[in-house]
Each structure stands twice: as C-alpha cells, then as structure tokens.
Amino acid sequence: MRGDDRDDPFGDIFDEIERMMNEMTGAGAGAVGDGSGFTSETHVDIYEEDDQVRLVADLPGVEKDAIKLKCDGKTLTISAASPHREYDERIRLPARVDEHSASASFNNGILEVTVDKIGDSAAIDVE
C-alpha cells in the first residue's frame, strides 16, 4: 500500500465542497448544453496598458454574429451563445474607459476588446 492510497478523512468533505461549488457556478455535470442557463466557464484576461484596457475572452464554438457587447465606462458585458453554451459575463474594468472608443475583433473563438482609458478626474480650483 502506497502512502497516498490511504483513506483521506477529509476526502468526502472536499468532494462535497467541490460538488456544491460546481452547482453554484454551473460548472458541474449537466450544466453545459442542457439549457440550464449561463455558465461561468468564460476565461477572460484583462491587460491594463498606459492608455488602454484590453480584454481577451475565450468563446469556443461561438459565431461572430452571436456576440453582443455593451460597455458603460466601468463594466463590459459580453453576451454570446453557441449551440452548446450561453455566456453572460459582466467584467468590472480596472480603470474608467471611453466606451465610445471601443473596438473588438473575433478570430477562432478568441474575442479581443480594446478601449481607451479616460484620464484622471480634473481638479477644481476654488476661488
């Protein structure tokens, strides 16, 4: 018997915690492709550069026409659907951005969105 073959007294607890987390996030068995709603499996990377914020999201199986993007200057919302999954992600941006400057590209399941940052708030002189 190897040391890692022993019964783990916490194994059942960790399995139960993992099962509950999968239920809450929709990542468990049966959540994908069964019409149960949105899943939280979207991988999004955010890159804050000097004058821009760039987001890269994995949307496998999604067609370009099925993607809807909205930005209010603080949050970017990505909504998309494929035959097997639905995506609905609200991403809080690391800086205020000019939503009218947004540009997006989609290639091979990878969505890239770039928006210009808005400068710091202007100081107000008191006279």
Rank of each mutant, 00 (worst) to 15 (best):
R19E: 11
E16Y: 07
I67G: 01
P60K: 12
T75I: 12
R6Y: 10
S103L: 05
D50F: 02
I13Y: 11
E48H: 02
M20C: 08
S103C: 06
S40R: 14
D45S: 12
I17F: 08
T114I: 13
E48W: 03
R90P: 00
E99A: 15
D5I: 07
N107I: 01
R19C: 03
E89L: 02
I78N: 00
D72F: 04
Y87Q: 00
I118E: 15
V44N: 04
A122F: 05
I124D: 07
E41H: 05
E16T: 10
M21D: 12
R2N: 14
R2C: 07
S101H: 06
A80P: 02
F38L: 04
D58K: 05
V97R: 05
I46F: 00
K117H: 07
A122Y: 03
Q52H: 12
H84K: 15
E18H: 06
V56S: 09
P9K: 01
A31G: 15
V56W: 02
D72L: 09
T77Y: 00
N107F: 00
M20T: 09
T77C: 05
T25K: 09
V56E: 11
R54H: 03
D116Q: 12
G28Q: 11
A102M: 15
K70V: 07
I13Q: 09
D12C: 06
P94R: 13
S36H: 10
I46T: 13
V44D: 02
D65Y: 01
S82W: 04
R19P: 03
L76H: 02
Q52R: 14
V115W: 02
D120P: 14
T25P: 03
R92L: 11
A31D: 10
G28S: 09
D15L: 13
K68I: 07
A95I: 05
M20E: 13
D7Q: 08
E127I: 10
D65T: 10
D116A: 15
Y87C: 00
V53A: 05
D125R: 07
D98K: 15
G30K: 12
D4W: 01
G28V: 08
K70S: 13
T25N: 14
I118T: 15
D98P: 04
F10H: 09
D58Y: 00
P83N: 10
T75G: 00
P94L: 14
S101T: 15
K64W: 00
A95R: 14
E63V: 04
N108L: 05
D58W: 00
L69E: 04
G28F: 04
D65L: 05
D116P: 05
E99I: 01
E86I: 04
F10I: 07
N107S: 07
S101E: 11
E23T: 07
I91L: 09
V44S: 03
G28L: 08
Y87F: 15
D50R: 13
S36A: 15
R19H: 14
E48I: 02
Y87A: 01
E63R: 13
R92H: 02
G3I: 12
I17G: 03
P94E: 14
D15T: 12
G35S: 11
I110H: 03
D50V: 07
M1I: 08
L76K: 02
F38E: 03
S105M: 03
E23G: 04
L76A: 04
I13L: 14
K68F: 02
E63I: 03
G3Q: 11
V62N: 02
F38S: 01
P60Q: 12
R6H: 10
I78V: 13
E89G: 01
A66G: 01
L55M: 06
D15P: 01
M21G: 08
